[in-house]
């Protein structure tokens, strides 16, 4: 009970911080919309009127409180640039982003775990060095370079010309595969180096623990030690990394992939909103990300209890 309360307080403080910083940056210091809303040659009164409507005449605290109130009552409003309800926009774009990001995200982690296990199994041998070399190489190539290269190589007549260059016209499984493949490959390639590094370090540390020596002393084979003892004991750090990269990958990763491939997901919408100063959309995205973080923290704590008997 005490624990749950502390978690809740912690989550509340985090949301408060995230909203405070994003409010200050995006709303208080953000672009001024007065002149895009008033007509040409507006009188001083008209301008004052608009500023009042937008709440620009209010002090910081009041604007921040009304920002929070809107967020918590889910009064998301309508986009400034298209006039469409923000909830509608989110409903349309979030599923696209999820479909776009999930395969690459999961594959990138699975591949990282597999390579990390293999490197731990053959620690110090040539295959470990090969995997390490591959990770460093992958970490040294810019995301943008990977995307451009894969696009030219797979989507244009200069390469294999197998997939569409950009867009997202998904109607069924085959069109989904057609549009998702190149973004997925990009995401996998760019995350696999970091993932492999991380997972290998976790596995190597677990493999050095005392109880691994015990398992060996009682005759367990290297494969079963790795598969059973090392992997199961590593589930906590694996879960942490996996869960906490979800919101970052979904927003930051999709921002880049979606603006490059012209895919109408939440990342592109967010980016457009930033460049247009579309505050209702920004409010919704930042608020939702913060809430998603809290939700993921709670969920992760629940998963910990399932996978580690010491966490009660």
């Amino acid at each position: 009970m005490n624990f749950a309360l502390r978690k809740l307080a912690h989550g509340g403080l985090l949301i408060l911080g995230v909203t405070l910083i994003s409010f200050s940056l995006m709303v208080w210091f953000g672009p001024d919309q007065t002149y895009s809303l008033v007509g040409k040659n507006a009188s001083a009164e008209q301008i004052a009127e608009i500023r009042k409507q937008l709440g620009y005449d209010q002090p910081f605290i009041e604007r921040y409180v009304s920002y929070l109130t809107d967020l918590f009552t889910l009064n998301l409003g309508a986009s400034n640039s298209s006039g469409e309800a923000v909830s509608n926009i989110l409903k349309k774009t979030i599923p696209v982003t999820i479909q776009l990001m999930i395969p690459g995200f999961i594959l990138g982690n699975l591949l990282g775990i597999a390579l990390g296990l293999l490197a731990t199994y053959r620690k110090g041998r040539w295959i470990d060095r090969l995997i390490n070399g591959f990770s460093v190489t992958s970490m040294s190539i810019s995301f943008l370079v990977v995307i451009i290269f894969l696009q030219v190589f797979l989507c244009t007549p200069y390469g294999l010309n197998l997939f569409p260059v950009r867009g997202w016209q998904v109607t069924g499984l085959s069109s989904y595969l057609l549009y998702v493949t190149v973004p997925t490959l990009s995401l996998v390639f760019i995350t696999v180096g970091y993932n492999t590094r991380f997972y290998r370090a976790v596995f190597v540390e677990e493999a050095g623990k005392d109880h691994i020596r015990t398992a060996r002393a009682f005759g367990a084979s290297p494969a079963s030690i790795l598969w059973r003892h090392v992997l199961k004991n590593s589930l906590v750090p694996i879960t942490t990394r996996f869960m906490f990269s979800i919101p970052l990958i979904v927003v930051s990763g999709s921002l880049l992939i979606e603006s490059y491939f012209g895919i109408p997901g939440i990342g592109k919408v967010t980016f457009d909103a930033i460049t247009n100063g579309d505050q209702p959309v920004l409010k919704a995205v930042v608020g939702l990300t913060a809430v998603a973080f809290i939700f993921i923290q709670v969920l992760t704590d629940m998963i910990y209890k399932l996978i580690d008997p010491r966490i009660a």
Binding site: L13, L14, G17, V18, I21, S22, S24, L25, M26, F29, G30, P31, P247, L248, V251, S252, L255, L256, T270, F271, I274, T275, G277, V285, V286, T289, A290, F293
Partner: peptide, 23 residues
């Protein structure tokens, strides 16, 4: 720790974009 946690919870590119606009 709170400040670090907050900064880590804001999607990075969104944060940069916001800073760029604020400045």
């Amino acid at each position: 720790l709170w400040l670090a946690g907050v900064l880590d919870s804001i999607p990075f590119y969104l944060f940069v974009a916001a800073v760029a606009f604020a400045l």
